[in-house]
Design a protein around this nucleic acid. Structure first.
Lengths: 337, 337
DNA sequence: TTGTATGCGTTATCAT
DNA sequence: ATGATAACGCATACAA
């Protein structure tokens, strides 16, 4: 493999001059520049990035931590992030934590060992106090997940309000026994959602009931299980709030082979506006998040931190959500005007 | 940031000895080993990976090239790959080419510049002759996509046979005007599928008709467009072979708000056995690929190449597929026995 | 405008 | 068992 030295020799010049050409710097005569370019071509020279990294203390690489890629929300998120990062010439390393504290800490080490310049946390299972020390090694930005006590940039929506809106909608459809279905570890985000859910209940004179709460549902097959649980143990339930379109879809799929009619017997709201929520029969009422905008902003904020280490950017970017009302909750027939 | 030098000084020993401790090498007294570990702890020392990379000429990182992550097939693929790679202590860089020749070449440069030790090609739009030279810089392995002329390991299924099976099934359901829907750039894989499709037609005395061929459909909304195209311009079509469950889902979704009844008027097969193919009403007949096994095998083969550069592994791993017959093609009623 | 010398942090070689 | 030194490939401060 040719090195800068080889190129210098072949061109009959010094490493410095070659380096200048490589980095598009001035103070090189056109003639010598050409000679060097020629030499690089002849040798098939390519700068060794490990050497550059060591010299520059930069990697042009970022890590994105998330639970798992098969959750389409995170799939969409990282798709957009990679695209944006690539525009800036940055690589993206995928870090699936599977909600494991250990894996999360292991991936954070990438920052310490200088394998990446910065980190995006799209989920968090460890305590913030265990993560904070990593800030010494480079910037960290939250996306989706957030944490009031952390003094770093955060890009997310108002999950409390979103859950509130969705729940109010269920209540307005005359649901009174609403099952609260969530999954994954308890997080700041999930607590916010729960707050919104409870706030809405309270406004209708209801309160949160532990026995209508399910906290282990994260995918389609869990959704199917949830339906059977409701069918067998909670027949009085008339509405379901879930934090995931996949779960909602599984539930609705399973209900189709039963007596339950959706939404008349059971109204269901999902979350994320995944494709499947539109395709289901009935289509699923859901909360849309501006995933691409959030992803783009997150990458932008992180890279700005890398480029201008001093500049403290405003550190909250809250994006709007939208409740998309579809057939899985339309219990009230419209009166003919 | 503390360096090995700092640790050495604090412990009153040499860099060499510290390095020995870091790398678990022998020839260090327990007493000094302890002293060094203590010093590393005190300083919060972590080896700098850029320096290690430069020194060892290894990155412990691989690149995975694919068109886009929002295609759930590739989402599942990379999820499994990342997990497997992480078991071996390897990082994964996501490289979305969006089927662009230029982006593909750019990402392949990662190999030349030593940012990654090896590359997995899950798709390919450039000619093989343009890719082959990169082999000088490190191993490349195909997964899903393949190429008969390339002398590198390949992990994939028999796409010709899979398409053949799916088409025969449509024909057995009495479809005679089958629309062939595909998307993305022409590739070896897509050619193989087409061969299988044509072979099946031929066995039923039919031949491929260009005007029943659509080559621009890759997602749900394309599937919707396909339906309208059939509805408006190809009303005599009675079956659809598509290379994607998303497209099939979009088509079926759109058909629901029309006169067409699926499968009676139009039988539809998808590909990949995505969750959505099961959830649709009617559920979608599809071809299942053993994604996880293929992903695991690919990573394993690549890492073996990295660990034992000499050892030529057998270079084809062909995995079985399975046609899952669901409601979108069940036109023939079972006779009561 | 060009070149020399030095150091980024690590590990391998060779002495001791 | 331990340490001095060179080398990995590059880019920068400084000199010319």
């Amino acid at each position: 493999m040719a090195t800068i030295e080889d190129v210098a020799k072949l061109a009959g010049l010094s490493r410095t001059t070659v380096s200048r050409v490589i980095n598009d710097q001035p103070y090189v005569t056109d003639e010598k520049r050409q000679r060097i370019i020629q030499a690089m071509d002849d040798l098939g020279y390519v700068p060794n990035s490990s050497a550059r990294r060591l010299r520059s203390q930069k990697t042009e690489t970022i890590a994105v931590l998330l639970p798992r890629l098969t959750n389409p929300f995170f799939g969409n998120l990282i798709e957009a992030m990679e695209e944006k990062a690539s525009e800036w010439g940055y690589q993206v390393i995928v870090c699936q934590t599977h909600d494991s504290k250990k894996k999360e800490m292991d991936y954070l080490q990438l920052l310490k060992t200088k394998q990446v310049d910065g980190v995006i946390l799209a989920s968090l299972v460890n305590d913030w106090k265990d993560v904070e020390p990593f800030l010494e090694s480079g910037p960290i930005v939250f996306c989706n997940e957030y944490m009031d006590k952390a003094c770093i940039p955060m890009v997310h929506m108002d999950h409390k309000q979103a859950a509130y809106d969705a729940t109010i909608h269920l209540l307005e459809q005359d649901c009174r026994q609403i099952c609260y279905v969530t999954g994954g570890p308890e997080s700041h985000l999930s607590r916010k959602r729960k707050e919104g859910f409870i706030k809405a209940l309270n406004e209708f004179g209801l309160h949160f009931e532990e026995n209508l709460s399910i906290d282990w549902a994260i995918n389609v097959s869990d959704g199917q299980k949830v339906f059977h649980m409701i069918n067998n143990e909670l027949p009085h339930v008339d509405g379901v709030f879930t934090g995931s379109d996949e779960v909602a879809a599984g539930l609705i799929y399973e209900a189709a082979s039963s007596d339950w009619v959706i939404p008349e017997d059971l109204a269901v709201v999902g979350f994320d506006n995944q494709m499947v929520s539109l395709l289901m029969v009935p289509s699923v009422t859901t909360v849309e998040q501006p995933v691409k905008q959030m992803a783009d902003k997150t990458v932008e904020v992180l890279i700005q931190q890398l480029l201008h280490p001093g500049a403290l950017a405003p550190n909250r970017y809250v994006y709007p959500h939208q409740l998309l009302v579809r057939n899985s909750t339309k219990r009230k027939k419209l009166s003919i005007q």
